[in-house]
C-alpha cells in the first residue's frame, strides 16, 4: 500500500550558504543571484566549511557579510594575488575570488593575468556589468561602445576610449587555465546554466586542474537608469552580442563531467 503523505513538498528554500541578513544591493541587482548560486553550489558539494572566499573592492565589497563561508577582503584588484597566497599555504581549502569588472579587468588586470598564467588552482567568479557600480556609474573597461555612463555622457567613443576588453577570450589563451566560460544572468534558464558553470569551476579546483573562471553577465539597474526588468532586457539585447556566451576553454576531463 502506498504511504499517504500530506506534508507539502518544499521545492525551494534559501540556501544555508547565505547568511540571514538583508543585503545592501539595489533592488533587482544580479549580484544577489550570483551570491545565491555560489552558496547553492558550495552547499551541494559539501565544501562550505572548508571554503575561503576573497572579496573585491566594488559593490560586492561586503560579500563576506552575505556568504556563509570564511572570507578575507583584498586590496582593489588584488584578490587573485591574495587567493594565490592562501591556496599555496592551505592547499586543502577551496579558494575563490569574487570580482567585478572594474576590479578584475581594470586595476586588477596584472594579478588576474599572472594568476591564470601560473595556472593557480583557484576559482574566479567574474561579474561583468559593463560599469563601475559602487562609485556612481563611470565607464569601465567593459563598457559597450556608445554606452552612456557618467564619465562618457555622450556614449563610449571608441576612438578616444577604445573597445571593451573581453576577459574570457584573453584568459582562454593562457596555458595555465583549465575552465574559462561566459554565462549570463538575464533569464531563469541562463541562471541555471550559470549555476552548472560555477559547479564545474569548483570541480576543476577540487581536481587540482588549475585556474578556472566563470564570467557572468550582470546588471546594474541603478546606474544604467532602467528598471530591473529592462536591465535584464539590455543584457540580452545589447551585452550578449558584444560578449558572446560560450565555453572558451574547457579541459577535456571537465567536459566529460556530468553535473
Amino acid at each position: 500500500m502506498a504511504t499517504l503523505t500530506t506534508d507539502p513538498i518544499q521545492v525551494y528554500k534559501r540556501p544555508v550558504g547565505l547568511t540571514e541578513v538583508h543585503s545592501h544591493y539595489c533592488p533587482g541587482c544580479t549580484h544577489g543571484i550570483s551570491h545565491r548560486l555560489i552558496a547553492e553550489v558550495l552547499d551541494e558539494m559539501g565544501l562550505r566549511e572548508k571554503t575561503i572566499g576573497v572579496a573585491p573592492v566594488g559593490c560586492s565589497v561586503f560579500a563576506y557579510k552575505y556568504l556563509n563561508t570564511d572570507y578575507v577582503e583584498a586590496a582593489h584588484g588584488r584578490a587573485p594575488a591574495m587567493a594565490t597566497g592562501i591556496k599555496r599555504v592551505r592547499p586543502e581549502n577551496i579558494v575563490y575570488t569574487y570580482q567585478g569588472d572594474g576590479d578584475l579587468a581594470s586595476i586588477g588586470m596584472a594579478e588576474i593575468m599572472h594568476a591564470a598564467g601560473r595556472g593557480e588552482n583557484i576559482t574566479v567568479i567574474f561579474i561583468n556589468n559593463a560599469i563601475y557600480g559602487m562609485t556612481g556609474g563611470q565607464m569601465a573597461p567593459t563598457t559597450l561602445p556608445g554606452m552612456k555612463t557618467t564619465s562618457s555622457p555622450k556614449g563610449r567613443d571608441v576612438e578616444m576610449a577604445g573597445f571593451p576588453i573581453k576577459m574570457s577570450e584573453i584568459l582562454a589563451t593562457m596555458q595555465g587555465s583549465s575552465y574559462i566560460v561566459r554565462r549570463s544572468l538575464h533569464d531563469p534558464a541562463y541562471i541555471r546554466k550559470s549555476k552548472k558553470a560555477i559547479r564545474k569551476a569548483f570541480e576543476t579546483q577540487v581536481r587540482g586542474m588549475g585556474f578556472s573562471l566563470v564570467e557572468l553577465l550582470s546588471t546594474c539597474p541603478t546606474n544604467w537608469k532602467v528598471t530591473p526588468y529592462e536591465a535584464l532586457q539590455f543584457v540580452e539585447d545589447s551585452m550578449i552580442p558584444v560578449f558572446p556566451l560560450g565555453d572558451f576553454k574547457v579541459h577535456p576531463e571537465i567536459a566529460k563531467l556530468k553535473v
Binding site: A2, T3, L4, T5, T6, D7, P8, I9, Q10, V11, Y12, K13, R14, P15, L18, H22, S23, Y25, P27, G28, C29, T30, H31, G32, I33, R36, D187, P188, I191, R192
Partner: peptide
C-alpha cells in the same frame, strides 16, 4: 525563486494524492 536576487522566496508544492 531562481530569478529572485535576494533569495526571499520559499516555494512549496502540494504532494500528489496517493492512490
Amino acid at each position: 525563486a531562481v530569478i529572485c536576487p535576494d533569495a526571499a522566496i520559499t516555494v512549496y508544492r502540494e504532494p500528489k494524492k496517493a492512490k
